[in-house]
Simulated scan of single mutants.
Amino acid sequence: MGVLEALRRYAPVLLAFAWAISVLIAFTAGDKGATARERAVGNEALVRLERKYADQRADLAQANLSALQEQAERVDKVVRQLQQTQQQLSDAHQELQERIPNVTTVYLPGPAAKPAPIPRCVFTAGWVRDFNLALGGADLPATTPATNTPVHDAPAWPAPGSTQELLESGVTPADILAFAQDYGRWALGLRAQLIAFQRKD
Rank of each mutant, 00 (worst) to 15 (best):
D55Y: 06
R199P: 01
G136D: 13
I25P: 02
L190I: 08
L89P: 04
D55F: 05
G30W: 15
G126I: 05
T143I: 09
L177W: 03
L7W: 15
L15K: 00
L96I: 00
E95H: 11
R191H: 13
D130A: 04
L49R: 13
K114V: 05
Q69R: 12
A92I: 02
M1W: 02
E70I: 03
Q164I: 02
E5C: 05
R39M: 13
I100L: 06
L68T: 00
A40L: 13
D31W: 15
S22F: 15
E5M: 07
L4P: 02
N132K: 11
L167N: 14
P173K: 01
T149E: 15
T124A: 01
V47S: 09
Q62M: 08
L135E: 11
A61C: 03
D59G: 02
E44S: 15
T143D: 06
E70V: 06
G33T: 09
G136I: 14
A72D: 06
R185C: 01
Q81D: 12
L188T: 02
T147W: 04
V151D: 15
G33P: 02
R39W: 07
A116V: 08
A72F: 02
N43P: 03
W186D: 07
L4S: 06
P158Q: 06
D31P: 03
S90G: 15
G189P: 04
L166C: 00
E5F: 07
R37T: 05
P111V: 09
F27E: 13
L7G: 10
A67C: 04
L46D: 00
R80W: 02
G2N: 08
A192G: 10
V47W: 04
L7T: 06
R9S: 12
R74A: 05
A40Q: 15
T124I: 04
W19K: 10
I118Y: 00
L194N: 07
W19P: 02
K32T: 14
Q198V: 01
N64T: 06
A40H: 10
L24G: 08
A11C: 00
N64Q: 15
Q62R: 12
L49F: 11
V171S: 02
L167K: 14
V47K: 09
L89K: 07
N43Y: 08
Q198A: 03
T147D: 13
N148T: 11
L140A: 11
V13N: 04
D175Y: 02
N102P: 00
Q86W: 01
A92M: 04
R129T: 01
V47M: 08
Q164E: 15
R9H: 14
A63K: 09
T149I: 11
R57H: 07
A34F: 10
V75Y: 11
L140Q: 07
D59C: 05
T85N: 09
T124P: 03
E5K: 11
P101I: 06
Q84C: 03
L167G: 12
F197C: 01
A16E: 09
V23W: 09
E5S: 12
